[in-house]
Design a protein around this nucleic acid. Sequence first.
DNA 1: AATGAATGAGGTTTCATTCAT
DNA 2: TATGAATGAAACCTCATTCAT
Lengths: 197, 197, 197, 197
Amino acid sequence: MRHEKVDLIFQAAVQIFSDRGFDQAKMDEIAQAAGVAKGTIYYHFDSKEDLFVGLMNEGLSQLTQYVERNLEGAFTASDQLYAIIEAHVQFFVENGKLAKLLLNEAFDTQERQLQFRAKVRNYISVIDQVIQTGVRNGEFEVKHSQELAVALFGAASVMVLHKIYAHDIDKQEELQAQTPAILSTLEMIMKNVIKMK
Amino acid sequence: MRHEKVDLIFQAAVQIFSDRGFDQAKMDEIAQAAGVAKGTIYYHFDSKEDLFVGLMNEGLSQLTQYVERNLEGAFTASDQLYAIIEAHVQFFVENGKLAKLLLNEAFDTQERQLQFRAKVRNYISVIDQVIQTGVRNGEFEVKHSQELAVALFGAASVMVLHKIYAHDIDKQEELQAQTPAILSTLEMIMKNVIKMK
Amino acid sequence: MRHEKVDLIFQAAVQIFSDRGFDQAKMDEIAQAAGVAKGTIYYHFDSKEDLFVGLMNEGLSQLTQYVERNLEGAFTASDQLYAIIEAHVQFFVENGKLAKLLLNEAFDTQERQLQFRAKVRNYISVIDQVIQTGVRNGEFEVKHSQELAVALFGAASVMVLHKIYAHDIDKQEELQAQTPAILSTLEMIMKNVIKMK
Amino acid sequence: MRHEKVDLIFQAAVQIFSDRGFDQAKMDEIAQAAGVAKGTIYYHFDSKEDLFVGLMNEGLSQLTQYVERNLEGAFTASDQLYAIIEAHVQFFVENGKLAKLLLNEAFDTQERQLQFRAKVRNYISVIDQVIQTGVRNGEFEVKHSQELAVALFGAASVMVLHKIYAHDIDKQEELQAQTPAILSTLEMIMKNVIKMK
DNA sequence: AATGAATGAGGTTTCATTCAT
DNA sequence: TATGAATGAAACCTCATTCAT
């Protein structure tokens, strides 16, 4: 395929950026991990930042697709809310490196993340809208829909991160084993807070 | 009392580290903001990392004290749980820069945060223990106490961060005005999840 | 006839080298301006330097031909001297980009220009010989013929360059309008210095 | 003194920039020639360009002072004109490296020289004004004063450059020996063109 | 205790050149 | 002949740290 090298670079970049963070990641290291020459990265990307931004957008877009796929067939607001949160948790558990990357940078400070944080806010507002729909059609009873959306996003994300740091990020089975406890806790929150009539 | 210059350095360091993150923060900048010569920082701290770790410990210790003060007079587990979460939110709203710093680095990747993340885990386990006490003495009914502790920590922290990024971090009044909605949402979660008999 | 692509490359190279100088000119840019792939340049030229040297020789050779054409029908030494200087000025005014290129590099420092500076010296020595002939056959009375040759070359060249920098190099009419003042000044110098009996 | 290192850097930079030109000059090389660390250059100068511009301004300012000193005691316009040209030639012969640097860059193309070329134009306009004064008070009879000023500047400069390239730039005596022929030629031009009544 | 000039290892980026197609 | 993706040496610049004063 045409973009064979680009794929190699992307894969290596997720690893390195996730392990080291943006600043500590060295282009040399990414090039070596990708098995290409340093110049090859610069042939395909304008700069370290360009590569990074490309990666974040790619990651967020994968997450969004993952969530949307899980939303198919969920028609009530409560089904939709659960589908989103479930997909969110599962995606992050399955893609630990990407999860670290997305969440670290979601809360970081740099100019470079402005655009990215806007997209995260947008992602959260989708949750918000589902909650608002539920309120409007009488499924839910919630005062601060936006705050709740953020709370769910935060609770789910931080729980996964906490597990990632507690376990070895590369041991998929161990991480997967944690999913039920996480989802069960989130389900409790949703079931009760969202006072179903 | 701590040396005058050390205080100046600490104050400047919180600002700069919070604004730029560890890697992007320059010792030059901190020195200038503190109004001391660069060499003076190195007279009082071994390295950039030493300064940073000192700052994080200081911040975490302030948070802990703030929480402990709010715990005085709370004797039931549910009062204690609420007191912790309330103090947590209030401290972070009142100390936005420190909040950014603590939370960014709490989720970061570097070696340098190993020690710090251990302390965060410890902080969370205090919440966990209150929940477990509540369960043991019949106040609460919870399956996964640790997950719940993390969920509360995550929900509270991310809500504050979200507000910080949405508003101007330096406008205290605006941020303070957000506290009730945050606390109200957390209260709902606690009240319902923790099924009081 | 020369290969079509080679012409395209030459034309583009004059533009780029003249605008940016040797070091700042990029092969990418030349290729793009020529509408060929970068590899194509390397198919026809061994290196950037090879292309550059080819260009300079081409330019100098055009100048020489231009001068020789203007010399036809000039039989006295003073007619010849004036014909050379006039052609020199006119050629440079008509080929501003080439003028910049030739004169910049004529005064530059690099190894790569050794060969080229030799040709410039040769060009100047033609002027010198005309002056010497004029002295020998009694037309002129000059002490330092070589110095005078260089002075005329320098005065003529720098005057054109000065006009090129003062005006927009691409506005031919503006530049052409400057020619009379330049030639008139040079004529005065020649008429008086070369004391005609 | 305070600026000991700055002086060392300046001296080294003249050598290297003059020998290699701006683009081929390496900061490493300048640092080594100056006997300081690379970082030291960047402690005192913002960039390679900053160093270069500083050098050019310094050089032009030395030239100007040299000329002004030679102008003292020259009261007629013709004395002044000769004093300027004489100082110009002598300064360049005595400071060969600087001469190469100033003249190469005076005719170069880059953005970075815009400011510098403006100063050169200013320098030339001083010559122009002397000529105009001479015309006004009846000493001279000249049609195109500006063109003549440029012609004199160009003739003088190129003659010196020509000698510099023909001889070894470091052999002061050889170069000095060339001065009379250069000045004699320029004197002839001035004496005759500027028709004294 | 405090200073700030000096250092140099290390990182990002550029770009002439190559070569498989 | 022509292409353009790939290469990697080399250059500029940064900045934590040191140390003489």
